[in-house]
Amino acid sequence: MLTDMQIAILGGDARQLEIIRKLTELDARLYLIGFEQLDPLVLGTSKEKIKELDFSKMDALILPVPGTSLEGELETIFSNEKVILTEQMLQQTPSHCTIYSGISNSYLNQISNNANRKLIQLFERDDVAIYNSIPTVEGTIMMAIQNTDITIHQSKVAVLGLGRVGMTVARVFSLLGAQVKVGARKSEHLARVTEMGLKPFHLENLHDEIKDIDICINTIPHPILNAGVIAKMPLDALIIDLASKPGGTDFRYAERRGTKALLAPGLPGIVAPKTAGRILANVLSQLLGDDFDKGKGKEK
């Protein structure tokens, strides 16, 4: 139980609703920032304006999955209010206060470090990333069906990257009957692709391997699909970029060439927000409970 723990939830999307439900069940006291349009109000919560929140009482801050923008702005789909998190706000929190975010960036890292507050990126955890790969691949299948005029079965699919998302995407598209090949750099990843019964190729050979594909699914958050690579693709190929913003695709060139390229980060929150929210809620409740049990939940 999280009785007497005071937590601020600062913006977010539909995934945050599952987090709110879970934490109120555990008897935490929640302060909701950027949820003016949320109705009815969940028992044990209160709506606040960020400038009126008493940060000195907060045991934890829960940010949206994308964290902040490079200007400190937080995503708030349940409010028209512009919510900005600053270093000064973090400095007002108790020293034990922990910040939870899905991912981070240079701004959030800097203000957390300057305020000497612990920042936990949930998507760096293997369990969260692997669980989230399930709704991610379902959303990818949906996008592939909606944006092509061929079946996935017998289509030629290239998956770039064999991380936690790439592995699930490659496996599921193969199970649907696609001819899947996977591009990677690490020898152990290429070996794993072979073990999975798929065709491996080194990313150094991407220009050659991309010439006959129907769908290219990128999971690498670096500029991998540049103009030179896209120019080698069939004109009617579909690019689905699952990497975090800004993705790994030259979208300007793809549009100019007439190749459809879709940036699709955060698919779990779009196609299955309840499931994605439950994944985050379960992990957060465990982490918050561990901190509380260790006596970090309140200042001594």
Results as ranks from 00 to 15, higher is better:
residue 111 I to H: 12
residue 221 P to I: 02
residue 152 I to P: 01
residue 80 N to D: 14
residue 190 L to G: 03
residue 72 G to F: 09
residue 111 I to Y: 13
residue 247 G to Y: 03
residue 58 M to T: 01
residue 56 S to F: 06
residue 294 K to I: 05
residue 136 T to Q: 08
residue 300 K to F: 00
residue 112 S to M: 13
residue 17 L to I: 14
residue 43 L to R: 14
residue 70 L to N: 03
residue 39 D to N: 15
residue 152 I to R: 02
residue 28 A to H: 05
residue 245 K to M: 11
residue 51 K to D: 15
residue 257 R to N: 01
residue 13 D to A: 01
residue 172 V to P: 10
residue 41 L to P: 08
residue 115 A to L: 04
residue 211 K to A: 14
residue 251 F to G: 03
residue 19 I to S: 03
residue 24 T to R: 15
residue 288 L to W: 09
residue 264 A to C: 06
residue 208 D to Y: 10
residue 156 K to R: 09
residue 44 G to H: 06
residue 111 I to D: 13
residue 126 D to Q: 13
residue 193 V to E: 01
residue 7 I to W: 07
residue 64 P to H: 11
residue 247 G to P: 05
residue 175 L to M: 15
residue 27 D to N: 14
residue 129 A to P: 04
residue 243 A to Y: 08
residue 285 S to D: 08
residue 244 S to E: 11
residue 146 Q to A: 12
residue 132 N to C: 00
residue 9 I to R: 11
residue 60 A to G: 02
residue 116 N to M: 12
residue 80 N to H: 10
residue 233 M to F: 11
residue 219 T to Y: 15
residue 11 G to S: 02
residue 194 T to A: 10
residue 208 D to V: 11
residue 247 G to K: 02
residue 19 I to Q: 06
residue 183 G to T: 07
residue 241 D to R: 04
residue 72 G to N: 10
residue 157 V to P: 14
residue 1 M to S: 07
residue 237 A to F: 07
residue 59 D to C: 06
residue 163 G to L: 10
residue 252 R to T: 15
residue 203 L to D: 01
residue 89 M to C: 05
residue 253 Y to S: 11
residue 209 E to S: 13
residue 60 A to K: 06
residue 40 P to S: 10
residue 88 Q to S: 09
residue 3 T to G: 06
residue 67 G to M: 05
residue 162 L to R: 11
residue 111 I to C: 11
residue 277 G to I: 03
residue 42 V to E: 12
residue 184 A to V: 04
residue 232 K to C: 12
residue 105 N to C: 07
